[in-house]
Computed example of a mutant assay.
Amino acid sequence: MISYYLQSFAEGVLTFISPCILPMLPIYFIYLAGDSEESEKGTSKKKGNLALNSIGFVTGFTIIFVLLGATATTLGSFFKEHRDILKIVSGIVVFIFGLNFTGLVRIGVLNKQKGFEFNFKRLNFLKSIIFGMVFSVAWSPCVGAFLSSALAKASVSDTIMEGMLLLLIYSIGLGIPFIISAIAFDSMKGLFKTVQRHSRLVSIISGSLLIIAGLAFIFNFI
């Protein structure tokens, strides 16, 4: 089970650096920073808002992901007598996501990003939680690929608490770099650009890890 937890954390981190999330971070950070005058006091206020609202944003998507983990485990328990079949099916799904991510196979429906409208102004902590919830249910296959792998592991967990913990750890893997990047956004812009320039390599590495995880499920290595 420990290997499942480590994989879920790694999948959360990989979700964060995936090529179609990273370019969107400045937009999210502008939302989360709120409106302030461009003065020294205003800049300080923006940084404070960004840090607090980023925590709220992470809390929002964590709530949804953990609930999804509980649901996946419940369904997995319901089909417990077909546990081996469920692991194989889950492995095939994760494997397909990996092939798509590497570009070896392009599946149109998996590459359609779902945008969303978010009209809140002057976000506060509570509104940021709702923003995070919107993110979790409306985002692109970048989240779907790695989230599916985490949910697949949750679906074969023995208890609901284990499934929820797996998705909590996934959310921590995604949330920690998000909060750190928000706090240090001004000094990390160069790093973001570097990762963006190597987005194809990031996709190949991420997809390869998904393929390995899928095969491990299919052949019952984990």
Rank of each mutant, 00 (worst) to 15 (best):
I2M: 10
S8D: 06
A10D: 06
G12F: 00
T15L: 11
T15Y: 07
F16R: 00
I17N: 08
P19T: 04
I21F: 06
P23L: 00
M24C: 10
P26W: 05
P26K: 07
Y28I: 11
S36T: 09
S36M: 15
E37R: 14
E38R: 10
S39T: 12
K41I: 07
K41C: 13
S44L: 11
S44V: 10
K46Q: 04
N53M: 02
N53A: 02
I55H: 00
G56L: 06
G60C: 12
F61H: 05
V66I: 10
L68I: 04
L75T: 09
K80C: 14
H82V: 12
R83P: 10
S90Q: 04
G91F: 04
N100D: 13
T102N: 09
G103Y: 00
G103M: 03
G108A: 10
K112N: 10
Q113A: 14
K114I: 10
E117A: 15
F118L: 13
F125M: 07
S128E: 06
I129D: 02
I130M: 12
M133C: 14
S136K: 00
W139D: 06
W139M: 09
P141I: 00
C142M: 12
S149H: 07
S149I: 09
T159S: 15
T159W: 13
M161T: 12
M161P: 15
G163I: 03
L167V: 00
I169A: 06
I176Q: 03
F178I: 05
I183A: 07
S187L: 09
M188Y: 13
V195N: 02
H198A: 05
H198S: 10
H198L: 07
S206P: 05
I211M: 14
I212C: 05
F221L: 14
